[in-house]
Design a protein around this nucleic acid. Structure first.
Lengths: 135, 135
DNA sequence: GCAGGAGTTTACGTTAACGTAAACGTAAGC
DNA sequence: GCTTACGTTTACGTTAACGTAAACTCCTGC
């Protein structure tokens, strides 16, 4: 029993398979394609999604959970690409990476403080429940 | 020299003061009021913001950085309020707090993986730069 | 006494991210 | 041969979160 005995990854997906898996509509998936975030293969008219396409879709949805716009998600996805050749572009990429990192660090701080406040709120709510249910 | 010798907190703010401080427009601030997220005092027609109003505004903007809608931010802000009296409401509040916590934990995971990928991308970019600038 | 600056209300415009619906093609099952 | 399921394109509708502009009031400095 090797590690590759796992469920076995499909070599392609239909649009509705992906829609079901990620709980979004096919309309949304086509919309992402319109916006240039996906470009699946075609058999005739029908779209055929590769495992790589599926990964890109996951990245898009992760971006959404972090509050990114589709444009921002596209930029992030583009960072994984082959190095865009020329030096100036690479330096802009490094700059961009630095900015994203700073944004994520701010989000970490924001989450930390919000978490603390949720703890407080939960404490107060539990205390109030005690008062209300004490006989 | 006591701790209270710090810059000294104003006891009230004008709308344009807040707009400048947080780098947003007065239009946005009034919009938040329309949506029920703020309710500043008035002197005549003019809005006067208390330090508490200012805190609420900060919470709204933190919510935005985390990708929350204004409705979500309002719900979160409402969690700090006096305990809403009855038991059922308190239990709904606890449930809601749990859900938000779960969402924040997902965001933490998302940020962590994205950070790792940014590291990779930066590594590749730096490597490509080496190749291009090596004489 | 009036120009300039800050504030107000009212209202229409705009962008992003899809939703919804129409009208059609194609392949499978009965 | 007809329905049912799944796919397609095209196009108009919708919601959130403001932007922009008009028309007005109220103070302040000169």
């Amino acid at each position: 029993m090797k590690a590759t005995d796992s469920p076995a990854e499909p070599s392609s997906y239909s649009i509705s398979e992906l829609a079901r898996e990620f709980d979004i509509t096919t309309r949304a998936i086509r919309f992402y394609e319109d916006k240039g975030l996906l470009s699946p293969a075609r058999r005739g008219q029908t779209r055929i999604y590769s495992p790589e396409d599926r990964v890109r879709l996951k990245l898009i949805l992760r971006g959404k959970r972090l509050g990114f716009s589709l444009d921002e998600s596209r930029e992030i996805i583009d960072m994984y690409d082959p190095a865009h050749g020329n030096v100036e572009q690479l330096q802009r990429l490094l700059l961009h990476i630095g900015q994203k990192r700073a944004q994520l660090q701010q989000q970490l701080r924001d989450i930390e403080s919000l978490m603390g406040e949720l703890d407080d709120a939960e404490g107060r709510a539990r205390a109030a429940l005690q008062l209300n249910t004490d006989s």
